[in-house]
Computed example of a mutant assay.
Amino acid sequence: MNFNIGGPSNLSSSSSSSDEEEEAIMAAPGAMDAEEEEMIAQYGQFQQAMAQYLNQQNNPVRRGGSIPGHIVINRDRESADRRLFYDYFTENPRYNDQMFRRRFRMGRSLFLRIVEKVEARDNYFMQRRDSVGRLGLSALQKITAVFRMLAYGCPADATDEYIKIGESITIESLKRFYRAVVEEFAGEYLRSPNATDVARLLRIGKDRGFPGMLGSLDCMHWKWKNCPTAWAGQYAGRSGSPTIILEAVADYDLWIWHAYFGLSGTNNDINVLEASHLFSNLTQGIAHPAHYVIQGKEYNLSYYLADGIYPKWSTLVQTIHDPRGPKKKYLQ
């Protein structure tokens, strides 16, 4: 038995002739054997599959935007935005300036300046309406969630309880916040001091009793919570847990104008100093000049205040050991 199978266009014409042929075969007693019955069954299955295919082509399934297994939570973000505003950012907030500084690790005016600059740099932080007209998350909500993570090291989903923001949006806000801050403030704050800055730092150091001082130099360890197990040994420092070292120079107003970050926690301050580029300009002879007099002697190189582990260089001034009392003399 031969079947003339055409495309979707001649399926209807071929179906009528096949029905007549099938009726004629069924009418003849004993005319079909097992092979013919199997072929007829296969042909019926083919017709059913082709009809289903044409139905799908003519009536495509419209899929929604929901993710299978995703739990939709009505967080009432509008009320959370109003509560956040009345708690911290209105003219008479519920929490005063001292509590704001403790919880945000900065003053309210500085925080609002950062929000304004970041929102102008990246429109992701601008509050918009969704397809049904509801207001989305505000810039205050997104950036407050970012600062809670940075200030307290809390996970992304922990900010949902007060700010009513999802974990994925919090992580995306954190990434975009980093990028916007670098793009907006790098030219002013992430740089080495120029001649004007050096003159200002020297003047302030002189007024504070340290003529020729540019700032304080020290290293600090940052805990690497998600350090790979294979690297944990080389990054485990004195605390026993994996850490990464940051070398920084800061002046009186906490302007960190030198930062060298990334060495493993097994290094000490001397190893970090030898690997950093702190004195690269000085070795090339292009450092900014500094002229000051101490006890009648003139100096032309500025220096940094450091602790006792640093080498005795002319550009590093260590702390003076001056114990007060007999107990301090013997125990220090």
Rank of each mutant, 00 (worst) to 15 (best):
E78G: 01
R108K: 15
D97Y: 09
F85Y: 10
G107D: 14
Y88N: 05
Y95H: 13
Y86G: 01
N96V: 04
L112T: 09
S109F: 06
M106C: 12
R108N: 07
Y95A: 03
D76E: 14
F89I: 00
T90V: 08
D97I: 06
L110M: 13
R105M: 13
M99C: 08
L112E: 02
M99S: 05
F100N: 04
F100E: 15
L112W: 01
R83G: 08
D76L: 07
T90K: 05
E78N: 08
D81H: 04
R108W: 02
Q98C: 12
N92E: 02
R108Y: 02
T90G: 14
R103S: 15
G107E: 11
D81L: 00
R102M: 14
F85V: 04
Y95K: 10
R83A: 14
L110P: 07
R75H: 09
F89Y: 07
D81P: 00
S109Y: 02
L112H: 03
R75T: 14
E78V: 04
D81R: 14
R77S: 13
M99L: 15
F100W: 14
A80Q: 02
R105K: 01
D87F: 06
R83N: 07
E78Q: 13
Y95F: 13
T90Y: 00
R77V: 01
R75I: 01
F111L: 10
R102N: 07
F104M: 13
A80V: 05
E91N: 10
Q98K: 09
R82W: 08
L112S: 04
R105Y: 15
G107R: 05
R101Y: 14
R103F: 10
Y86V: 12
Y88I: 00
R101W: 06
R102D: 13
R105F: 14
F100Y: 03
F89P: 06
L110D: 07
Y88F: 15
M99D: 05
T90W: 00
F85D: 00
A80K: 02
M99Y: 07
E78Y: 02
S79K: 03
R103H: 13
G107C: 01
Y86F: 05
N96E: 07
F85T: 04
D81V: 05
G107P: 05
R101P: 10
R77C: 11
M99W: 09
F111C: 08
M99G: 01
Y95E: 08
N96A: 11
M99V: 06
R75N: 08
E91R: 11
F89V: 06
L84W: 10
D76F: 03
R94G: 01
M106Q: 05
R108M: 12
M106F: 03
D76V: 00
S79Q: 12
R77M: 03
A80Y: 11
E78A: 02
A80R: 11
D87A: 12
Y86E: 15
R108L: 05
F100M: 09
F100R: 04
D76T: 00
F89R: 03
L84A: 10
